[in-house]
Structures are given as structure tokens and as C-alpha cells.
Simulated assay, not measured.
Amino acid sequence: MISIFIVFAVFILYYINKMTYSLCLQKEIPEEKQPKVYRTINVLITILLISSFVEIALT
């Protein structure tokens, strides 16, 4: 179960980063601010994935 969830998490993070790139292009976010945007979104998605894993593991 852990390996399936890890594969799922990597898949989700990849597509979230792909969508973040599209967002940066569409909103014309300056190059200097893009790393902060990526970091913020990745941290929030990672927290969401960890909390989902914990909930699944405890049920």
C-alpha cells in the first residue's frame, strides 16, 4: 500500500508542478518570484498528501 501511495504522490506532484508552470506563464509571474511560488505550492501539496496518507493508514 505504501508503494502505491508513493507512486500516486509522485504523479500528483508532477502534474501540480506542470500546472504551476502554466500558471506562472499565464499570469506572467516574474522569474524572481517563481521559486517561491513553486516552493509554497509544493509544501502545501506535500502536507495534503501526508495527511491523506495518515488518514488512509489509520482507517
Rank of each mutant, 00 (worst) to 15 (best):
T59E: 13
L44R: 03
F11L: 13
A9G: 05
V10M: 04
T59N: 15
I12W: 00
S22H: 10
T40Q: 13
F11Y: 07
C24Q: 03
S22W: 12
I56P: 04
L23D: 05
L44D: 05
N42I: 03
V37R: 02
S3F: 00
Y14A: 15
E55L: 15
T40P: 13
Q34M: 11
T59H: 10
I56D: 03
C24T: 15
I45D: 14
L23Y: 11
Y38N: 05
I47D: 02
F5R: 07
S22Y: 12
F11K: 09
I56W: 03
Y15N: 15
M19D: 12
E32V: 05
R39K: 09
I2N: 10
L13E: 07
V54S: 05
K33H: 10
A57K: 01
C24G: 08
N17Q: 14
T59C: 13
L48E: 07
F11S: 12
Y38K: 06
L48M: 10
K36I: 10
A57R: 00
L58Q: 15
M19R: 03
E55Y: 10
I50F: 02
I45W: 03
I47H: 02
F53C: 02
N42R: 02
P35L: 01
L25K: 12
R39M: 12
K18R: 14
L44M: 04
M1N: 08
Y14H: 15
I4L: 14
K33C: 09
P35H: 00
S22P: 01
R39A: 13
Q34V: 03
R39I: 01
E28W: 00
I47N: 09
V43L: 11
E28P: 05
L23W: 03
S22V: 07
T59S: 14
L49F: 04
P35S: 04
A57E: 05
T20F: 02
Y38F: 09
I16E: 06
L23C: 05
F5L: 14
T20M: 08
V37W: 00
Q26L: 11
I16S: 05
V7I: 08
P35M: 01
L48F: 11
I4A: 14
A57G: 04
N42L: 00
I56N: 09
E28R: 12
F5N: 14
I56H: 06
L25I: 07
N42S: 03
R39P: 08
S51C: 11
I12R: 01
A9K: 00
T46D: 00
L48A: 10
V43S: 09
L44P: 14
L48I: 09
Y15D: 15
L48W: 08
V7N: 10
K18F: 13
V10R: 04
E32I: 02
S52L: 08
L13F: 04
T20I: 04
K36T: 05
A57F: 07
L25P: 14
I2Y: 06
E28D: 15
M1P: 12
Y15S: 07
I6T: 00
V54C: 01
P30H: 08
I6N: 07
V37M: 02
